[in-house]
Each structure stands twice: as structure tokens, then as C-alpha cells.
């Protein structure tokens, strides 16, 4: 860059002999400011990518959880410890870059990581408590990881878009559970099935017997919801949410809402299949059902 300065110096302007160097000095000032800005931006982008990758791994492990409304099993906690650590150290590393003015300046660079982490965080929260984590709680969670640099901002946009993605995880969770254990996680659906089983299933509903025992414990408590009920409820709230028109956020919501509806429908379709074949199962007519009957035993023995 020094080359430029000599170029300037040799330029000879009779009307303003001093003009070149002040301009160069001025631009040198700008260069260092812009370099700082670009470096900060790069750091944030990199951290966002790492947070995204670690959050995806968190979700991957969490998908191995089978019990809803229980503490996360130890093997998942152990597997995920390193990813939590990665996420925390990434947030801590960039928190000082995202203070005051810069909180919003780089929000488009960190939003990817925030959304993915939001997805993981809300999914885990759901598995543990069968409820949706609040914006405040999620915000505190991320803020607390900022460490000495200050807290990292979670915008309502990050939160909402993360929750939209979490619907996909709930879908996967519900369908995997149905495939492996032949039932929808959560208690409510079992209760509803009772009358039907009694009238149609009859004496040879050996597997159903087991389910009934499980649901029998719930009967003293208030009726429990299953994942599908929760998905439908979440869908209502997300559909009821009205994003500001003409913003990029609104476009994102429009796209995600389509995917979300598909996710809910997939679970509904899967449940339909389960109910249909579930009735036929005792008769043993359909060959692949023998496999489905074995599967739950494996899981329970797990």
C-alpha cells in the first residue's frame, strides 16, 4: 500500500500542492476502521457457523431420546457435553464483538447460529418439560453464555425462526417414536384409544395391554397431551403470529410456515397409519407388522 503513497507524492497539482497526502491519510484512517469491521464480521460469521454445526449435533443426539417430560438420559447428556461446550465458548469468544452498536450491526451474521441453537435449545426444553421455552428464558440462556464480553442478543426473529425449525424436530421425534414403540409420545392419545381397542381389538390385543398399563398410571393426573396435540397447538400459535409486512423476516416466516404445516401433517398421516394398522395388527394379516411388533420389545428392553 506504500506504493500508493509514492504515486500520490509524485502527482503534482499546481493548484493544490498539499491535496494528495491529506486524502491518503484520511483513507488510511478509513482502512483501519473498515478492517476492524470486516475482522469482527468474519469472527462473528465463523462463530455462527460453529454454533450452527454444534447445535445440529445436539439435535442429532437429542433425537435418540424416547421419553417425553423426563430428564435427558445420561448417555445423551454425556454425548452432548462437548457440543454445549463448543457453543458456549463460541458465544463467549464473540460476545465482546456484539455489544452496544454492534449488537444489531452483525445480527444478520449471527442469526444463523442463534436460530439453530434456538432450535436445539427449544427441542431439549420440550423433551424435558413438554413445553415451549419462552423468549425470555432462551434470551437469558444465550446471554449467560456471553461471559465477560457481555451478553449476546437473541432477537424475536431469531427465536421465532428457531421455533419454526423445532417443529421439524418434533415431527422427527414423533415419527421415530411411533416407528419404534408403536405409539405417540405423551399420554393423551392412549386414553383416547381405549374405547376403540375394547370394541375392536378384543381378546388378542396383547401389545395393547401393555400400553393400557402405561396409560393407566396417568389416569389420576390431569389428561396428558401427546406430541401431536402439542404440534397442533404450536401450529396455531405460529400461524396466529403476524410478522411485520415487507420485512425479510416476513418472507422467512412465509417459507417456514409451509414447511411447518407439512411437518404437522406428516405426523397426522403417520398416526393415521398407526391407528389403521394398529387395529389390524392383532389379526396378524400384514407381514411387516410382525416387525413392528418386535420393535417395541427391543426398545423397552433397551
Amino acid at each position: 500500500m506504500g506504493k500508493k503513497r509514492t504515486f500520490e507524492d509524485t502527482m503534482d497539482d499546481p493548484s493544490k500542492p498539499q491535496s494528495a497526502s491529506p486524502i491518503v491519510a484520511m483513507f488510511e484512517g478509513f482502512r483501519s476502521e473498515l478492517d476492524e469491521h470486516h475482522d469482527r464480521r468474519e469472527r462473528v460469521i465463523k462463530a455462527s457457523r460453529d454454533i450452527t454445526a454444534a447445535s445440529k449435533k445436539l439435535i442429532f443426539s437429542l433425537q435418540r431420546v424416547r421419553k417425553l417430560n423426563h430428564p435427558i438420559p445420561l448417555f445423551v447428556v454425556k454425548a452432548n457435553a462437548q457440543y454445549w461446550q463448543t457453543i458456549e465458548s463460541q458465544y463467549r469468544a464473540i460476545s465482546s464483538d456484539l455489544q452496544r452498536l454492534n449488537a444489531y450491526r452483525y445480527r444478520s451474521n449471527i442469526t444463523g447460529g442463534n436460530q439453530e441453537f434456538m432450535e436445539a435449545l427449544s427441542f431439549q426444553h420440550y423433551l424435558e418439560t413438554q413445553s415451549l421455552i419462552s423468549y425470555e428464558e432462551a434470551g437469558h440462556r444465550i446471554a449467560s453464555m456471553g461471559g465477560e464480553g457481555g451478553s449476546v442478543l437473541l432477537t424475536p426473529e431469531d427465536y421465532i425462526l428457531g421455533i419454526f425449525d423445532m417443529v421439524g424436530e418434533l415431527m422427527r421425534f414423533a415419527i421415530t417414536s411411533m416407528a419404534t414403540s408403536g405409539k405417540l409420545p405423551g399420554g393423551e392419545s392412549r386414553r383416547q384409544k381405549h374405547p376403540r381397542e375394547e370394541t375392536s381389538g378384543g381378546q388378542d390385543a396383547d401389545k395393547m395391554e401393555l400400553d393400557r398399563q402405561v396409560s393407566g398410571q396417568d389416569e389420576q393426573k390431569p389428561p396428558r397431551r401427546d406430541v401431536l396435540a402439542d404440534l397442533r397447538e404450536l401450529r396455531l400459535h405460529l400461524e396466529g403470529f403476524d410478522p411485520p409486512l415487507g420485512e425479510k423476516f416476513a418472507d422467512d416466516v412465509d417459507k417456514k410456515i409451509v414447511v411447518m404445516r407439512q411437518c404437522v401433517e406428516k405426523v397426522e398421516t403417520a398416526l393415521y397409519g398407526l391407528v389403521m394398522r394398529g387395529q389390524e395388527r392383532p389379526k396378524g394379516w400384514i407381514p411387516d407388522l410382525t416387525e413392528q411388533r418386535r420393535a417395541p420389545e427391543q426398545v423397552e428392553g433397551y
Binding site: Y126, L132, P156, Y159, R225, A229, E233, H237, F241, D242
Partner: peptide, 16 residues
């Protein structure tokens, strides 16, 4: 149920 309605009321208020 799963969702505390206050969550979305609050978010709606923010974007409004």
C-alpha cells in the same frame, strides 16, 4: 398446553 400464550402475545407486541 404446550405453549404459554403469553409468549406469543409478548412477541407480537414487540414486532407490532
Amino acid at each position: 398446553g404446550m405453549v404459554n400464550p403469553a409468549i406469543f402475545e409478548d412477541l407480537q407486541a414487540r414486532v407490532d
